[in-house]
């Protein structure tokens, strides 16, 4: 009971803060007489959200789709590489420099290449989202797997456990907290990737919609697009946070012990 009321108190504080920011924004725009071409007020943004909703919806759906598709591909590839790199010294030494090299490329720069190969549209957005979220997943999964206590590994090896036994029973469960932490980061990064790609080379998606809106100086609609992105991002983050606390509660055992 105590924990619950405490939770509500903490949540209510952050909700109050969010509302406060929007109220401040609204009031500052009104008092300062800031034009909606420069910075529309939240109420104007919400109004245009409602007004253009039929037009916004397919774009939002498209962005959500490309992001999740890219994220899914990124997770599959990221986990595969993470497991391979984390469980073998040789693979680690061999592949790590390449991964660091790839990760240091600004991902936006690969969009034109994807467009060249696959044409403008959905595919570059998916691929950009995928490539941008692979790296944090690889690094985290590999770290989780590579940091299994050597003593535990010895115990498993004296049991004549195969590599697969060790991976399945020890390394993978152990890497789960790392994996979920990276998922939360990766899903927000995937949004960055897909929106950037849509902005540059697509005629669908929130990124494209914002480009079009800004070229017609429909600034409230541009901000409406931002709101949608923020909403989607927060929603996915929340989903993965929830999944994380369900699957890897044991990693936050101190918290569990207190409540």
């Amino acid at each position: 009971m105590d924990g619950l009321s405490d939770l509500i108190r903490r949540k209510s504080a952050s909700i109050a803060l969010i509302i406060g920011v929007f109220v401040f924004w609204e009031v500052a725009c009104l008092i300062g007489g800031i034009s909606d071409i420069v910075l529309p007020r939240p109420t104007q943004i919400i109004a245009s959200l409602i007004q253009y909703w039929p037009a916004i919806r397919p774009h939002a759906g498209q962005t959500l789709f490309t992001t999740l598709a890219g994220f899914g591909i990124g997770v599959l590839i990221g986990v595969a590489f993470g497991v391979a790199i984390g469980s073998s010294r040789l693979a680690y030494d061999t592949a790590y420099p390449l991964l660091v090299g790839i990760s240091s490329i600004p991902k936006v720069a690969v969009v034109p290449i994807f467009v060249l190969w696959f044409g403008a549209g959905t595919v570059p957005a998916i691929l950009t989202a995928a490539i941008i979220c692979i790296f944090p997943i690889v690094v985290n999964v590999a770290t989780g797997i590579a940091t299994v206590e050597p003593e535990l590994e010895d115990v498993m090896k004296t049991l004549k456990a195969s590599k697969w036994d060790i991976l399945w029973n020890v390394s993978l469960p152990r890497a789960m907290p790392y994996f979920f932490a990276s998922l939360k980061v990766a899903v927000t990064l995937a949004f960055v990737g897909s929106v950037v790609a849509e902005t540059v080379a697509s005629n669908r998606g929130i990124g494209n919609m914002m480009m079009v809106a800004s070229s017609t100086f429909n600034v409230p609609l541009v901000f409406a697009g931002l709101f949608i992105l923020a909403g989607l991002g927060v929603g996915l983050y929340a989903i993965f946070s929830l999944a994380e606390s369900r699957v890897t509660g044991w990693a936050h055992r101190k918290d569990l012990a207190v409540t």
């Binding site: 206590e149 010895d154 115990v155 004296t158 789960m176 055992r253």
Partner: peptide, 12 residues
């Protein structure tokens, strides 16, 4: 069977 000073029980 093997046991070290560090119990290395699996926390999950």
């Amino acid at each position: 069977g093997m046991a070290y000073q560090n119990p290395t029980l699996l926390p999950w």
